[in-house]
């Protein structure tokens, strides 16, 4: 097992080197999966202010007034992605790179 364990790593480095480089050099996860490198944000122009995301958020990170765009408090957000699933208006987006993400504190 020790001999074959590196295979998944070696093949991904070989064929997807740019993805590793994106993580290392630009702190950017192209697939937007790595929690430390992404952040969730509410699009102000799409948000109808229904409050569904705020109600569902397990860490109480989304707040706002009804009928006005809500906002995600990055320090509280645990990057679970539930808000994206419950939003009917596609108003939550995931961003990565350019300093987005909370680092390893998630």
């Amino acid at each position: 097992m020790g001999q074959t364990a590196p295979n998944p790593v070696l093949t991904t480095i070989k064929f997807f080197r740019e993805e590793y480089e994106a993580h290392i050099l630009h702190k950017y996860c192209p697939a937007k999966k790595c929690k430390a490198l992404i952040s969730y944000e509410v699009l102000t122009d799409k948000c109808k202010g229904c409050g569904r995301c705020s109600k569902e958020c397990p860490s109480g990170a989304i707040a706002g007034e009804k009928k006005k765009p809500f906002t995600v408090e990055q320090e509280k957000c645990v990057r679970c992605g539930l808000c994206i699933n419950v939003c009917k208006f596609g108003a939550v987006q995931v961003l990565s790179g350019n300093g987005k993400g909370a680092g390893k504190n998630v």
């Binding site: 097992m1 364990a5 998944p8 790593v9 991904t12 590793y20 993580h23 697939a31 790595c34």
Partner: peptide
């Protein structure tokens, strides 16, 4: 598909082998 992070994938497998190493 494209929504899969390959680094995360490699980490997933390594997490498995690391736990299962005798």
């Amino acid at each position: 598909d494209e929504s899969t992070c390959m680094v995360d994938m490699a980490k997933f497998f390594l997490n498995f082998t690391q736990e299962e190493s005798c």
